[in-house]
Simulated scan of single mutants.
Amino acid sequence: MSRSLKSVDVDPELYEEFKRLAKSYGMTNKDLFGAMIRYFKVTQADPRDPQTVNPTDAIKALDKRLIGFIREQEKKILRPLSDDVKVLITLMQEDLPRKIGQAHLRAIGNSIRPDLLSDRFKAGLAGPPKPPVPPVDPNAPKKN
């Protein structure tokens, strides 16, 4: 099947610029022309408006906004919440057992639905961490 090629009239200066552009992309003039057509079709960019926002710049701006939003949420919600949880765990592990007794604290914990208890909360109900037992040295002299 034979195809008839068509030509496009263009100013000589513009044609030279087109050839340089094709060369910079490592494409033939024909390939660059086809790629340009597909680009404008897919992106729906208006070739008459060279001030159109660069998609890469738009993505970077959106990325900055998203990071700013996340940082703001962290500052206003996550850090205060984390601080509150730390205070509650400290209260459960140290202050409450001294004031109301570990048995009462366990009774309170047992009244909470088990599926609501996190491992950290369960550890708080178990009481303060016990100090590690030093290993026994078999060569040490025995005490009587």
Rank of each mutant, 00 (worst) to 15 (best):
S24A: 07
L91H: 06
K23W: 02
P97W: 03
A22T: 00
Q93P: 05
K23R: 14
V85T: 07
D63H: 11
P134V: 02
E17R: 15
E74C: 04
T43K: 13
V8W: 11
D84V: 08
V53H: 01
K76M: 06
L88S: 00
D115Y: 07
P47V: 04
F121R: 00
S4V: 13
D95R: 12
A140F: 08
M1I: 04
R20T: 07
P12N: 10
A140W: 08
V136P: 08
L5E: 05
E13S: 10
Q93V: 13
K76P: 01
P12Q: 04
V8P: 02
V42S: 04
L125C: 12
I37T: 06
F33R: 09
N139Q: 15
D119G: 08
K76C: 01
F121D: 03
K64E: 11
D63E: 14
G127P: 03
L14Y: 02
I37L: 14
L88E: 03
D137I: 03
L78M: 11
F121H: 05
P131H: 01
L81D: 05
M1E: 13
Y15K: 12
D115F: 06
E17F: 10
M1W: 10
I67F: 12
E72C: 05
K122V: 13
A103K: 15
D9F: 15
R3E: 15
P129M: 03
R120M: 12
I89S: 02
N144D: 09
P132Q: 09
Q51L: 11
F33I: 07
L125E: 05
S111P: 02
P12V: 06
L105K: 11
D83A: 03
E72N: 10
K60Y: 09
G127R: 02
F40R: 04
D83P: 03
R98G: 07
R3W: 12
T90F: 15
F69T: 15
A61W: 01
S7K: 10
P141Y: 11
P128G: 09
P50D: 11
